[in-house]
Design a protein around this nucleic acid. Structure first.
Lengths: 222, 222
DNA sequence: GCCGCGACCTTTGTATACATTGGATGGTGG
DNA sequence: CCACCATCCAATGTATACAAAGGTCGCGGC
């Protein structure tokens, strides 16, 4: 793997996981020393982060980690909802039903996975299942432009998710919503799939903007 | 202006205007010599082009101008339509009516601008008017994530537009459609604005995919 | 004559040295 | 005492030199 790739993925993970907070300055010499690469590949990594929206260039001051907060999540979903709905609609038309039927079954059986004893293990497995459905939708939609538009949105979403941890109750609901989406896709029912996706996204947004989940970010800003 | 910015905008324009055709190899030494910059800023320009989707990296072969054709325009609009509709819907809610009313008037009076004697001059002025409306919508929507998702789509769209020149009749229809959008926005009518936008985009797509306009691209590939 | 292997060469990836710009700080004048 | 300007410094922007990797061409063997 190239040095610039390593620098990029390390910085990207650091930002998404809030080890690098908004406003933090990514000085070239400092970061190149920290990551053990030269300034040239680091600059390439930084420019990729800027293109992705995870950082912004302050003229003369280098690049800083871009601001984001739970307040931005509404704007984020205003862009996300139409994109995901469009994707799922196309996927229902073009996709192979045989791909989505097993996924629907998995979501139907995901209950024990979520509130089992090995908590974090089960949650990780569930998140993996969600990722597989997302990937199957991307494959079925087979639209590179749609994917390109969704990519930065998903990156930002991953970042705000860390501010509001999902609880088991929400995850159970989420599994049910995902099952509905997968079943509609397996049936090739575009209208139903879009509606189910819309329901899921609205519920997710509602959960994220519920104030009871805010406030543990204080630990990240001592 | 920085050398990397100059290299980026020059290459970007060259690709959009089809001076650099899909499949063309952007060798670092060759392009840096052509643009009169060193390899370092050129690499930054290339990585920006890759992030934008105008070029792709072929391992070991450098970066090549990405493929695009009129066949891709349907996929492009599958991503564009939901985004523009979402933007116009939000703009109708948040926007200032005083901004859009004059724009609607301008579109209403755009007829002579289009099929006047100074053909290309008038068309350029009309395209500028369209750009102003787009910008006003972006400002009114005030959603950076939506804008970020739209940016690559618009870039690709500019590229395919060069394959199918607009004719005066289509432009007159386009002006009328834009007028409808602007009026709905001035009235703060989100539903109507979205519908008008949807009409406009479907008509545009229909025009672009009408086969009578293909075929002058042969001059670009001798 | 065709396939495979190897060497050469072109091209990209990386590092470092140098130039330049923007900012901060301290001093001076009003 | 405040404000403005000049100087210094640190950080980025750029260029070039070097290394590594992949591709292509040619030669030899089958």
């Amino acid at each position: 793997m190239r040095a610039s790739d390593r620098a990029y993925s390390t910085l990207r993970t650091d930002i998404i996981d809030w080890r690098l907070a908004p406003g933090d300055i990514l000085a070239e010499v400092e970061q190149s020393a920290r990551l053990g690469v030269s300034r040239t590949p680091l600059r390439e990594a930084l420019s990729r982060l800027v293109a992705e929206g995870l950082a912004t260039t302050n003229t003369g001051r280098g690049v800083v980690v871009s601001e984001i907060s739970l307040e931005a999540v509404t704007d984020l979903f205003d862009a996300r909802i139409p994109l995901e709905c469009a994707a799922v609609r196309i996927a229902a038309r073009r996709g192979d039903p045989a791909v989505f039927a097993p996924l629907a079954e998995e979501f139907a059986c995901a209950g024990p996975l979520i509130d089992g004893d090995g908590d974090s293990d089960g949650q990780a497995a569930y998140y993996g299942l969600v990722a597989r459905l997302d990937h199957a939708i991307d494959e079925a939609a087979a639209n590179p432009y749609l994917l390109q538009a969704q990519k930065p949105i998903r990156t930002h979403l991953a970042r705000v998710r860390r501010l509001a941890r999902d609880n088991p109750i929400r995850l159970l609901h989420s599994a049910h919503e995902h099952e509905q989406i997968a079943r509609a896709l397996a049936d090739g029912n575009a209208e139903l799939a879009e509606a189910a996706m819309r329901v899921h996204l609205h519920r997710s947004l509602q959960h994220l903007t519920t104030p009871s989940h805010a406030g543990h970010g204080a630990a990240l800003h001592p």
